[in-house]
Design a binder for these strands. Structure first.
Lengths: 336, 336
DNA sequence: CTGTTAGCGCGTTCAG
DNA sequence: CTGAACGCGCTAACAG
């Protein structure tokens, strides 16, 4: 129950004894107002606690807002929060605010959520794709709304994208292991997003191929079944007749699982995880590190650029990863 | 460069051969439209790729939007992301989207950022206070905008708030230590937010008092100086002439620091951390756990309730913590 | 069940 | 330098 209602441009104008337009000029930074008039207006505005109505302004200005939408899926993965933070950081620099919504990991709800945001006339859409395809965005794209996907490319839609160097990052890790004599290297992932997983798997296979291992499938545990934990995957690997001497993981979660299982074992097994994590340094875990915040920043910058100058070729930005050697990945293969 | 411009209600009306108002009715869920007419309208809308303009609708409906603002400071602390996730989750249920902005840890920018969001006519404001006081929000409060603070109360402003049971949570931890014979218990915190720190410190002191320790100041390391790391605080404690036999930490970060330092030591020191973390179970670290997502959810629900029925008494929700014993906190005090 | 009129709060256009 | 009229896209209030 508002004690008083919100003051409008007109209220301020009336109190200051000028027309609404003059007040408007003051707030749109037009210099063509007498300093004295301006003072009077600002004083009146302050008394009335006037705040310009951005909604009305946006409507008048051709439905342009100063917001950018960000849609993500899995709300429990810290990785995406860092991405979100990076996006928000860059947008803020450009004077935009971020409208954030999540699809709650339900692929079907992606179009619904995205639609709700688009109807708010956001100036750009940053999206971590989760639905099977993004063709439903084709219309919006043609209307000129910049669309940027992060972490993975869109399917059936031409859009800018910012991704990690998943393939080469994983290949670096595996090469480092083969250089230490390893040939039997396990690949463990929990069920996760297809694109990143397949890229990392490809990097793994490629590096093994280079080292003369043509078929790595016996050591691959891709976690296609959601009911299988990374721990149990590691367990099945180590308990097999020909256990690996090293393990790489497909992501953060899988690394945690592997750690838990390896803790219970005697034999040293080399481990390199994908994604860095807070205690990795203390625990001496080698990882393929990257900067999730930077991923977001790059997407945010891309959004701002697109808002400025529409058009131009589609861009694909691939951010580098960095192999951080902390010990766990540098255990040499047992000889003989 | 838009290939075509956005279709409006009128465009759809023209194509369907009806009036704008009828189209409007279809989109506002009014049942009073002939199924046949509705079909024709929806077909036309689809052809034109029409999407209702939420901005215009909001303006017409008295400047009401379907957004809620969330403002936080420190963008690097995962804790707040979980809070954000909780808020967003609840808001989505009520059909609201979250406008997210951060102040980048600069207390002075809080009013600026908040103002920018309020000018977008958000229906409620959820805030993690960072500025010295929130009296600048008094005007907005009188206009009827619900304001909810999370993690700490507002200063100089009457507002609903959702906080943790910081004091009793910490007291529980300390009591558990004193029950195991500890009396010399260190309190380590990195420089952090005043409110939570002082509450937790109060709980610590109270529990020690109950155990007969009147003055705990020699074992308190509050991290007032930002240049001092938690590690070095722990070091100074353990290297003192009368070192503690147990340590409690003021938050997540301090726990990490303590862990790093304790790793390098021989003598067992009991440790209980405030805030849970991913590897705590694997590492056997006892903690005062709580659910940051639930903190956000509670705030989100509060916002929705306030939007529904303004008025009523101010509410303060205190969420419980849970002492999770994993070993590190159950090391008994050395006898003699 | 459907159409007409008016106007949300602001900014653009064109006069003064 | 300032003001009056008009309309952004949509919906409330009234007709019919």
């Amino acid at each position: 129950m508002p004690i008083q209602s919100r003051a409008t441009l007109h209220d301020v104008a009336r109190l200051a004894g000028v027309s609404a337009k003059t007040v408007s000029r003051v707030y749109s930074g037009s210099p063509r107002v007498l300093p004295e008039t301006r003072e009077r207006i600002l004083a009146a505005a302050k008394r009335l606690r006037f705040r310009p109505n951005t909604v009305a302004r946006n409507l008048r200005q051709g439905g342009k807002t100063d917001t950018v939408a960000f849609v993500m899926g899995d709300i429990h993965n810290p990785f995406y929060f860092h991405v979100a933070a990076g996006i928000e950081q860059e947008l803020a620099k450009g004077g935009f605010t971020m409208l954030w919504a999540s699809t709650g990991d339900a692929p079907d709800s992606e179009p619904v959520v995205v639609d709700a945001l688009l109807s708010q006339l956001v100036r750009a859409l940053v999206l971590i794709p989760i639905a099977g395809d993004q063709s439903y965005l084709e219309g919006e794209r043609q209307l000129g709304t910049p669309i940027i996907t992060v972490d993975r490319p869109a399917t059936d839609l031409v859009a800018d994208t910012v991704v990690l160097a998943n393939r080469s990052g994983m290949a670096d890790a595996v090469r480092s292991l083969t250089a230490n004599g390893h040939r039997k290297i396990g690949f463990v992932s929990n069920p996760s997003e297809m694109y990143t997983l397949s890229e990392r798997l490809a990097g793994y296979r490629q590096a093994l191929m280079e080292a003369g291992v043509a078929d790595s499938t016996p050591w691959e545990r891709l976690g296609n079944d959601p009911s299988i934990t990374p721990e149990s995957q590691v367990r099945s690997l180590l308990d097999s007749s020909d256990p690996p001497t090293a393990i790489v993981t497909g992501n953060n979660r899988a690394t945690m699982g592997a750690l838990r299982e390896l803790r219970t074992r005697e034999d040293p097994v080399a481990l390199i995880g994908f994604d860095d994590f807070e205690l990795a340094e203390m625990l001496g875990i080698s990882v393929v590190a990257h900067d999730p915040v930077e991923l977001g920043r790059a997407a945010g910058r891309l959004a701002l650029e697109r808002i400025e100058h529409h058009g131009g070729p589609i861009r694909r930005i691939e951010l580098p990863t960095r192999l951080v050697k902390r010990g766990s990945g540098e255990i040499p293969a047992p000889t003989g």
